[in-house]
């Protein structure tokens, strides 16, 4: 079945584009500091708001800082935040989701009650509220976004566990004489991995978007450290003088999200040919 899905031209393009962009993002995040021509915080006031030139390939910002270097550094920030947040939401969410789906009864009801209360907030609202509590900082965003997205993971994992534990191969394992724990570890969890991977990919995109939105609102990565979102925010007053300061960070976010979304589509088609 996956062979047939792979033969579809759209999927191939999705996969190639998605993997390429994601790989570039990771490369930029890891090797950015060595590749960038300047320190992202270094001021060069004479070059203030200048467009692309030989000295500053992508121009300079309102303090004359090199835009290319700041974009590279922003990639590192965004990728790190998204990665850490996904891991945080995934680990915590999976633990609660598995507990709820596995133990059922009161544990399930309690976990789902709290979870549903969190889900009753639109995602960004919860993140904003949590940022108000934690305060704007890089680690603060990770905690806030992680907590905001965790309920979705709990829901997906629990649903997967609940549906898989009713399958006949799981019943066969019980009849065989395997303990509940072995049945869970050997047959239920491995079959939950596919939906979790797809969710993790999609979530990576959401988090990059949310982080840039928070930073744009001034409640995310605090300046002067560059992030794509706060670069847009600080450049807004100079929209008519230096449009490149607006265009470039947004383009970075859009291309990254496009790549991750396409990777997510390709993964979904590949792991779940039904869609």
């Amino acid at each position: 079945m996956s062979a047939r899905a792979l033969a579809r031209p759209g999927l191939k393009f999705n996969a190639v584009f998605g993997v390429t962009v994601t790989a570039l993002l990771i490369l930029l995040a890891v090797a950015g500091p060595w590749m960038a021509p300047y320190d992202p915080l270094k001021l060069d006031l004479p070059a203030r708001l200048s467009g692309p030139s030989a000295a500053h390939l992508l121009g300079a910002d309102e303090f004359g800082r090199d835009v290319l270097s700041r974009l590279a550094s922003g990639a590192r920030t965004s990728a790190w935040i998204a990665f850490a947040t996904v891991i945080f939401a995934l680990v915590a969410g999976t633990v609660f989701g598995v507990l709820a789906g596995f133990l059922r009864g009161w544990t399930d009801r309690l976990i789902m009650m709290v979870n549903d209360a969190f889900l009753a907030f639109p995602g960004l609202l919860l993140a904003l509220g949590l940022m108000a509590v934690i305060g704007a900082s890089r680690d603060g965003i990770i905690v806030a976004l992680g907590l905001a997205y965790m309920p979705i993971v709990v829901r997906v994992v629990r649903a997967a566990v609940m549906s898989i534990r009713e399958r006949e191969y799981v019943e066969a394992s019980r009849v065989m004489g395997n303990s509940e724990f072995i049945t869970m570890a050997r047959h239920v969890l491995p079959n939950c991995v596919a939906p979790i991977i797809v969710l993790a990919t999609t979530m990576f995109g959401w988090i990059i978007l949310s982080e840039s939105a928070l930073s744009f609102l001034g409640l995310g990565v605090p300046p002067p450290a560059p992030s794509w979102g706060n670069m847009l925010s600080t450049a807004r007053p100079y929209i008519s003088q230096a449009p490149h300061l607006i265009i470039l960070p947004g383009l970075c976010i859009s291309i990254t999200l496009l790549g991750i979304n396409m990777l997510g589509d390709a993964l979904r088609d590949w792991l779940d040919p039904k869609m």
Partner: peptide
């Protein structure tokens, strides 16, 4: 293919950036 491509691209553009770009084009 056109609808899928357009919607995937739209899905990937942050609203605040799109707003700034539209403002730049139609306003400025």
């Amino acid at each position: 293919i056109g609808v899928v491509a357009t919607s995937t691209i739209l899905l990937s553009i942050p609203s605040f950036w799109l707003g700034l770009m539209l403002m730049m084009i139609f306003g400025l």
